[in-house]
């Protein structure tokens, strides 16, 4: 575990992430007139019903589909040379620089400073059904887990096996996996906060709230 201050400083030095916008599938790409440096946003609205910024259109089998920004940030690069050409699935179309929000910073700090339970192998992970409903209804921080508890379902090759949690007793402080996507072996699934560390965690949160300035 690293020192919080140190991690925070490191984050301050680079207060953003840069993510590539990739072609979701093959097709011919046409960019909108979005310029490098333009502000973009992901899905917004109370029900996430307002779509993100339209970056490009990809046409496959005469079916145009919009490629939308999925994060708030700045269009760092647009690979305009691809305009009008055929691209394979997964080809980068541009880069969005996303400035970390306070919440994201807290989440990153906690990943470094709390006990992280990692994926033993590459697979898709789900919470067991009762935990899953609890997490969805009340939020993950209401769930207390202990060593040996059946917590996950590991899904790969259409087969599902249960996975037990091992580590200190505490509440699930944050969740880092997406049920739809494969998690690599060794990547953290959850971080766990034991009761005695809770005040320390709250300190971190308070500190970020006061110190972190959200970028554009």
């Amino acid at each position: 575990m690293r020192d919080i201050a140190e991690v925070l400083e490191a984050l301050k030095a680079e207060p953003y992430t840069e993510k590539e916008v990739c072609a979701p599938h093959s097709g011919v790409i046409t960019f909108t007139d979005i310029a490098e440096g333009a502000k973009v946003h992901g899905f917004t609205g109370m029900w996430k019903e307002i779509p993100g910024t339209h970056i490009a259109t990809i046409t496959r089998e005469k079916n145009p589909r919009k490629v939308l920004a999925n994060e708030r940030g700045v269009m760092q690069k647009v690979y305009r040379e691809l305009d009008g050409t055929f691209v394979e699935s997964g080809t980068p179309l541009g880069v969005i620089r996303h400035y970390l929000t306070r919440q994201e910073v807290v989440s990153r700090l906690l990943k470094e400073s709390l006990y992280a339970f990692c994926a033993p192998e590459r697979a898709k992970y789900y919470f067991t059904p009762d935990i899953d409903t609890k997490v969805k209804m009340l939020g993950c921080r209401t769930v207390t887990i202990h060593d040996g508890m059946e917590l996950f379902i590991v899904s790969r090759m259409k087969r599902e096996v249960p996975l037990c949690y091992s580590g200190p007793t505490g509440i699930i402080y944050d969740v880092y996996f997406d049920q739809q996507k494969n998690v690599d072996a060794g990547a953290p699934l959850i971080v766990v906060c034991p009761p005695d560390q809770q005040s320390a965690v709250e300190d971190v949160v308070a500190r970020v709230q006061s110190e972190w300035v959200e970028g554009e």
Partner: peptide, 20 residues
């Protein structure tokens, strides 16, 4: 009669594939 693919409006949430 049109030879083209059509996307389901819910493809993002429900993982629907384009249909012919």
């Amino acid at each position: 009669r049109e030879d083209r693919a059509v996307s389901c409006p819910y493809s993002a949430q429900r993982g629907c594939m384009d249909m012919w």
